[in-house]
Amino acid sequence: MTYDLSPRPLNPAFPTPAMTWPNGARSAVFIGFDVDAETAWIGNNPSNVDRMVTVSHGGYDARVGIARILELMDELEVKGTFFLPGWTALAHPAACEPIVKAGHEIGHHGYLHKMPDRAKLEEAMEEIDRGFEALEKVLGVRPIGYRAPSGENFPELLAYLQKSGIRYSSSFRDDILPYRHRLADGRSGPVEIPVNFAFDDWNFGMTSRTSSRPLFGRREVLSLWIDEFEATHGWGGVTTMVLHPQVSGRPMRWHLLRDFLQHVKAKSDVWIATGAEITRHFESVAAPQN
Rank of each mutant, 00 (worst) to 15 (best):
W225M: 09
S164V: 03
D74L: 13
F260V: 00
R142G: 08
P143R: 01
T232F: 01
H233I: 02
N290L: 11
E220T: 15
H263S: 09
V221M: 09
A89F: 05
V100K: 12
D36G: 13
F14K: 07
G131W: 06
S169W: 02
P194F: 00
Q246E: 12
G165T: 06
V141T: 13
W41E: 14
G189F: 03
A13T: 01
P9W: 00
R250S: 13
Q262C: 10
F197N: 15
E152G: 08
Q262W: 07
A40W: 04
T274G: 05
I42Y: 03
H104F: 10
G205F: 15
T54K: 10
Y3M: 11
L243G: 10
M252G: 13
A91Q: 15
P12L: 00
R258C: 05
A18V: 14
P149G: 13
H181F: 10
A91V: 06
S284D: 13
M52H: 14
N196A: 07
N23K: 07
R118T: 09
M1Q: 06
V55S: 07
V242E: 10
A95D: 09
H109M: 07
S171F: 03
H113Q: 08
H244C: 03
G86D: 10
D175T: 00
A276T: 14
L222K: 09
F14C: 12
V55A: 06
V49C: 09
T88S: 13
C96E: 05
L70Y: 08
D129G: 06
P98G: 15
G165I: 05
E230L: 04
P190G: 03
P190V: 02
G151T: 12
S223K: 14
I69S: 13
G165N: 05
V221L: 09
H255Q: 15
I66D: 07
I226Y: 04
V191N: 02
G186K: 05
I193E: 02
D269M: 11
V64Y: 14
K267N: 06
V270L: 09
F260I: 00
D174F: 00
F216K: 11
E220K: 14
W21G: 09
